[in-house]
Design a protein around this nucleic acid. Structure first.
Lengths: 204, 204
DNA sequence: TCCGTTCTGGACTTGCTGGTCCATTTTCTG
DNA sequence: CAGAAAATGGACCAGCAAGTCCAGAACGGA
C-alpha cells in the first residue's frame, strides 16, 4: 500500500495528494485535469503515474481517502467528548463553522460521483466515514444517558442515524443553495430532540 | 423558451430529454456522452444541437429540470395532504419506497455537480425544488397544528427545514452505502419530533 | 566509488467527444 | 401547389486530456 520506497518519494506522493485536493476543491472534479494537478504540485506526468499507476481514478481515490480523514479530525476534540449539553453545543458550532467555511464544495460527494459506484474502493471510504461518524454521535448520546441527561428509553442508534442524515442533508442543501439554514435547523432540532427525550421543556 | 416550433419538434425534444434522463440514471453523468444519448433516443447529432443550441450543458440542464419536476410529483398526492398522522405515515412510506427503488442514483446531484455551480440556472433549479418541498412540509405541519395535533409553539419552518435536511441526507447516505436505514431514521425521528411536540408520549 | 533502484522530465501518441456543417427531407403556410 | 421554415442525417473537424515511453538525474546501500 505505501507506494513510495523513499522519504523523498513519500513526500512527493503526499504533495501530489494535497495539491490535488486543493485543485479539486477549487475547480471541482469534473473540470480538473491531470495537467492542472501537475501544475499545482510541480510534478511531471511520469511522477503522477509513478505514484498512481492505475491513473487518475487511483489518484482521485487517494484524495477521497485524504478528505475523508479530515472530516472527523476537523470536528475534534469536540466530537469525542459529547458528554454534556455544552459540549454538544460546541460541537454543533464547529460543524456549522467548518461547513460554512468550506462553502459550496463537497470534495467527497464530487469524488464519489466521478470515480463511480462501480469502483469497489469508493463506497468503502464513504461507508466507513459514515459508520465512524455515527458511532461517535451514538457514543455521545450514551454519555448523556449515563449522566442522566436523556431518557434511558431513547433509541440511541436511530437518533444518531437521523442526526447524521440531517447533517449530510444540511450540507448538501448548503452546497446547492449557499444557505446554511437547513444545516443549523437539522443540528438544533436533533439536539433538541435529545433534550426533549429527557422530558426537559423545550424553548424555541 | 419553447425551443420547438412544431408538434413533431416538441415531441422529438421531449424524447431527447426523457431518453437522456434514462441514460444518465443508468450510466451517471460522468460516463455519458452525447453519442449515448443519440443512440438511445434514435436521433442525430444535428437534432441534439438543433434543440439544445448551447450544447451538452443546456441539455443536462433541461434533464435536471425534468428530474426536479418528478421529485415532488412522485410524492403526490400524499405530500399535498399531510393533515393527519396517517397521511404523514403514508407519505413517509412513499418517500422510502421511491428512493429505495431509485437505488444509488441521484440524477439531480450528479447533474448539478457536472453542470457546475458556475452555471446560473443550475442552482435555481435545486433551490426552487428545495423551497417548494420545504413549503409543502411546513404546510402539512400547519395543518396538524390546526387540527390540534401538534403544539402551537412548534417552529414549523425550522422543523420543516430539519426534516428536509434529514431526507436529503438520508438519500445521500443511501446512495453511498446502499442502505436506507438513515433515511428511515430521519423520517421517523422527524415525525416523532412533531408528535412529541404535542406532548404525546413516544413509543420507541 | 560503483551499481542498482527509485525518481523525475517532458515529448509524444492516441482515442474520444463535443461541436460544426451542409445536404436532404418533411412540414407548415397561404 | 409553391416556397419558406423547420427538422433530420451523418460525415467531418479540432482540441483536449489520459496515458506511454524512454532518457537521464538523484539516491541508497555495499
Amino acid at each position: 500500500m505505501p507506494d513510495a520506497a523513499t522519504v523523498k518519494g513519500r513526500a512527493t506522493r503526499a504533495r501530489i495528494i494535497g495539491g490535488a485536493a486543493e485543485v479539486l476543491r477549487e475547480q471541482g472534479v469534473a473540470f480538473t485535469t491531470l495537467d492542472d494537478i501537475r501544475g499545482r504540485t510541480g510534478t511531471s506526468k511520469s511522477q503522477l503515474f509513478h505514484y498512481f499507476p492505475a491513473g487518475k481514478d487511483e489518484l482521485l481515490l487517494a484524495v477521497a481517502r485524504f478528505e475523508a480523514d479530515r472530516v472527523l479530525e476537523d470536528q475534534q476534540p469536540h466530537l469525542g467528548r459529547l458528554d454534556s449539553w455544552e459540549s454538544w453545543q460546541q460541537w454543533r458550532d464547529v460543524v456549522v463553522e467548518r461547513y460554512e467555511r468550506q462553502g459550496d464544495h463537497c470534495p467527497l460527494a464530487a469524488l464519489f460521483l466521478q470515480v463511480g459506484r462501480s469502483h469497489p474502493g469508493a463506497r468503502a471510504i464513504v461507508s466507513e466515514l459514515m459508520r465512524q461518524w455515527q458511532q461517535q454521535l451514538a457514543r455521545g448520546m450514551r454519555a448523556l444517558r449515563s449522566n442522566g441527561l436523556v431518557s434511558p428509553a431513547l433509541d440511541v442508534d436511530r437518533a444518531a442515524a437521523a442526526l447524521l442524515a440531517g447533517i449530510q442533508g444540511g450540507v448538501t442543501i448548503m452546497m446547492s443553495t449557499g444557505d446554511s439554514t437547513h444545516l443549523k435547523a437539522a443540528l438544533d432540532t436533533g439536539i433538541e430532540h435529545l433534550r426533549a427525550s429527557a422530558g426537559e421543556p423545550t424553548a424555541t
